[in-house]
Structures are given as structure tokens and as C-alpha cells.
Amino acid sequence: MKLSTKWIALSAIVIAGGLYVGVARADDAATLDTRIATMKSQGKDMTGIKAYIDDKADLASAQAAGADLVTQVAKIPDLFPKGTGMTQFPGKSYAKDAVWTDWDKFLAQAKTANDKAMALNAALKGGDKAAITAAFGDMGKNGCGACHEPFREKKPS
């Protein structure tokens, strides 16, 4: 009896631990899904702004995209909890471990992206196409690209 109590307690701990890990992993998976969706939204916003630059869309739609972009980029730091990298989610996450081993640098880069997004949004509000084009290039290269370069693994195809 004493032995079985011990085994029941042990089993309960193992199951609870397993459940905890399972829930945590489910949370991480949900955050990862949100992150992927957020990144795609940002891509959509950038595409919308590019369409205006290329004379394929009007300024109003680009301004709407710019306003949305600012809100999406601001979410970035919260969408990278530990345990959501390519090590834990191979084939789904392409976030390198460097995100977390070099967290301060990552945060600084996320802030840079945020600043560039706000500058792009301000340029869009101003309506000057040359300024918008310059701010778009700056956001793409020094906001998005400069973060992808050290922190995102290449997708092979």
C-alpha cells in the first residue's frame, strides 16, 4: 500500500510535469503562430506601400498600410519568448538561437525597426513620394533586413 501511494504520487508528479511542459509548448506554438501571422502582416503592409511607390496603388491605401505596420512592428519583442526558436520548432521557426543569446542586440534592432516604421508612417502622412520611397528603403534594409541578417535562418526553398 505504501509502495503504491508512492508510485501514485510519483506518477502524478510526472503527469503534472508533462502537462505543464505540454501546456508551455502549446503556448509557445500559439505565440509562434501569432508571430508568423504578424510577420506576414508586416510583409503585406510593405507590399501595399511598395505598390504605391510603383504607381500601382493610391496613397490612401499606402497610408493605411503604414499605420498598420507601426502597430505590427511594435509587437515584435513580445512575440519572441524563449523556446520559440528553430531549435524547438525545426521547419516552422527560423529564429536563430542568437535572438536569445544576444537578446539586448535583438531588442535594439527591434527598436530600430520600430523607429524606421514610425518614420515611414510619418512620411506617408506627409504624402511626399520621394520621402516615402526613401523611408520605405530605409525600413526594408535597416529595419527588416538588418534584423533578418543576424537573427533569421535562411529558408532553403
Partner: peptide, 23 residues
């Protein structure tokens, strides 16, 4: 040509890694 100019892909992504350097 646009990707080679600013690193942007048609879906609004921006290349990273070695390609960012090539850009």
C-alpha cells in the same frame, strides 16, 4: 531587380543572412 536593389521580396519580406550582404 527590385530584390537586388533593396532586398525586398514580392511578398513584402526582406532578405537576411548572406543575401542581405549580396544586396
Amino acid at each position: 531587380a527590385s530584390l537586388l536593389k533593396d532586398g525586398g521580396t514580392p511578398d513584402g519580406d526582406f532578405v537576411g543572412g548572406a543575401m542581405a550582404e549580396i544586396v
